[in-house]
Write a protein that binds this DNA or RNA. Structure first.
Lengths: 150, 150
DNA sequence: ATGTTATTGAAAATGATTATCAATATCAAT
DNA sequence: ATTGATATTGATAATCATTTTCAATAACAT
């Protein structure tokens, strides 16, 4: 995603295009990882000393309001952020063992699942007026080791 | 859910059954709403002045670790909590607005979804040796009101 | 009843995010 | 290119939910 695309988007929404914002967008565009505000700030600090954490938050806020950013609450009070790519899958399941707390990421989705997710999101959108930006599926159970350890 | 059931559960996990915990469980059992820790605290304060917010958090923590509580991160740093009922109705989606924290329960499952959930659980079981006992789907997005409020 | 130890509530600490504010930078209009 | 209105910046302080600490108390196995 070239910078001038983002510049246009910011200007289009009445916001200005600034050096800190460009740095933040460059970073977000280059990675596909979920980053916290602090991680973004620390990454940028090397190439852009003097940038403020506050500015990171403000830029993320604008991006979210424009609908280009996923905010992923962790439940610890911290959020992770990622640009919404106009393509599909960053979907993943969590398999959580209720005995030992182990968490397994499960990313092998089948076609069928992806389709259903899309359909469901469409339905939720229509019914509740929600603009869905992300989802989180968690399965709870007992892992292999804990089943044997009895 | 009668109190003595909870008493047994707490004692069974090495925890003690105390007056504050009974008050909290009574409240949670009586409601089906998603409550924040502070809301629980404020509700209890009337009938149990002197109860501490800290104790609410600690009790919620135990319940979550025992697997009887859903913790729903709002993205605002705040979490909402609800008891997991052991009946059918436990299957529902959460629609969470990452702007204002609103949570909507979505229970209108379509046949297709239920089927897929079963299939997926089978697959996860086979592949990872997990015995799945529950699941929790959450969708994040921006609600109607927040989309309009610009 | 007693002793061990988990629990309690108040207060302080933490950690992420947000508000404040004076200085600065952007950019539309000249 | 210069100007002027105003959005943005970064440092600092403030908020807000949740955790930690700790001495006093309560639960419960014996």
């Amino acid at each position: 995603m070239p910078s001038h695309k983002w510049r246009k988007r910011f200007r289009g929404s009445g916001s200005r295009w600034t050096a800190p914002r460009e740095a933040i967008l460059n970073l977000l565009s280059r990675t596909s990882k979920h980053l916290s505000a602090k991680e973004i700030y620390q990454s940028l600090f090397r190439i852009y000393p003097g940038i403020g954490l506050t500015t990171v938050y403000r830029t993320l806020d604008i991006l979210e309001k424009m609908g280009y950013l996923n905010k992923i609450p962790l439940g610890t009070g911290e959020n992770k952020y990622e640009l919404i790519t106009n393509s599909e899958e960053k979907h993943h399941h969590h398999l959580i063992c209720t005995q030992c707390g182990k968490v397994i990421d499960y990313t092998d989705f089948v076609e069928e699942e992806l389709e259903l997710i899309n359909k469901t999101e469409q339905r939720l959108k229509k019914k509740h007026g929600f603009k869905i930006t992300d989802h989180n599926f968690e399965f709870y159970g007992i892992c292999k080791e804990c089943q044997e350890r009895r």
